[in-house]
């Protein structure tokens, strides 16, 4: 059976029962494949370009490091934050989803301004893998908020109660929804 040329018309459905090889829409349109190939080339090219010419780093959220509060307990941090909400970001230097969250989400202007306006933002960096142990404050916070994965973002109210937890490298939209819900519920 000769293959159908790309310029030929498609066969009829009734042919299908007679001989399945006759029923060919099977030759993929060349134009479509060309477009697909061009898109793949473009995607690879953009990736290579991003690798060779990295975009300048965008401003991210100004996190306080938990080390600044070394020797303090959490109630003291809450007291120091005044009436603002606290946003803990449980982070680890070796954690690639944490880096992606930082680069893709925390640099978003809306998210950055929302956090800086409404929260005291504290980054709690895990050092268990590197140093074999964590500072007491870090360990206490991880235990209190049952941290099992990085990154985890925990919002705490001025009353010291947890208002919400977001686990993983979520999308900007999910983080924004999370933040606005906490803010609106705390008003």
């Amino acid at each position: 059976m000769a293959p159908i040329d790309s310029e030929q018309m498609v066969s009829t459905a009734s042919d299908a029962s007679a001989d399945s090889k006759d029923y060919r829409l099977s030759v993929t349109p060349r134009g479509f494949l060309l477009v697909a190939a061009a898109m793949i080339v473009l995607r690879v090219g953009l990736t290579v370009n991003d690798f060779l010419n990295p975009a300048p780093a965008r401003a991210s959220v100004q996190w306080h490091n938990a080390k600044e509060f070394a020797g303090s307990s959490e109630p003291e941090i809450i007291k120091a934050s005044g009436k603002k909400l606290i946003l803990y970001e449980f982070y680890a230097d070796w954690c690639s989803p944490c880096t992606r969250l930082e680069q893709d989400v925390m640099t978003n202007d809306e998210i950055r301004s929302t956090i800086e306006k409404n929260f005291v933002s504290i980054r709690v960096t895990d050092r268990l893998k590197e140093d074999g142990k964590n500072d007491r404050l870090v360990a206490d916070l991880q235990k209190r908020y049952r941290i099992f994965a990085f990154p985890t973002v925990v919002a705490v109210g001025a009353d010291g109660e947890s208002k919400g937890t977001l686990v993983g490298n979520s999308s900007s939209m999910a983080v924004y929804r999370f933040l606005t819900k906490i803010i609106n519920q705390s008003k």
Partner: peptide, 11 residues
């Protein structure tokens, strides 16, 4: 694949 790294639970 969950976009998280697993922590060492301390509880």
């Amino acid at each position: 694949v969950p976009p998280v790294s697993v922590a060492g639970p301390q509880i």
